[in-house]
């Protein structure tokens, strides 16, 4: 239940960012000034924090998505749903902690 709720929440969060991102990249066609003027949004501290949360959501959604695919297509997958959830959490931490440190390195 928790894994499913997080999966949906992360997915919808990434979708909202994707729509914003398509709008901003559309501005590239209108030249350097049009695009660079928008970048203050992405360099704002609130967005920088949101960016780290976005990557967390993406990593979780990707790992839990693999778990869903294994449950659906691997004949023994349904027996290991819980164990695979623990693996998702472990792999998430292994991938996300170094990523987050690298992302906030300009702070140091």
């Amino acid at each position: 239940m928790v894994s499913w709720a997080l999966h949906r929440l992360a997915g919808l969060g990434v979708l909202v960012f994707l729509l914003l991102h398509i709008v901003d990249i559309f501005a590239v066609g209108y030249g350097p000034e049009a695009f660079n003027d928008l970048l203050f949004i992405y360099r704002h501290p609130i967005f920088r924090a949101g960016e780290v949360i976005l990557v967390a959501g993406l990593y979780y959604h990707a790992l839990n998505g693999i778990r869903i695919i294994l449950v659906d297509f691997w004949s023994k997958g349904w027996k290991y749903e819980r164990q695979m959830f623990y693996a998702v959490v472990a792999l998430f931490l292994i991938a996300f902690i170094p990523t987050a440190i690298l992302m906030i390195r300009p702070l140091f």
Partner: peptide, 21 residues
């Protein structure tokens, strides 16, 4: 994941601008 690693980890949004794209 490739996109995130290139755009948000190897580079950061400080380096990405029109010329980068």
């Amino acid at each position: 994941i490739t996109h995130v690693v290139i755009m948000h980890v190897i580079n950061t949004v400080d380096e990405i601008d029109y010329d980068f794209v």
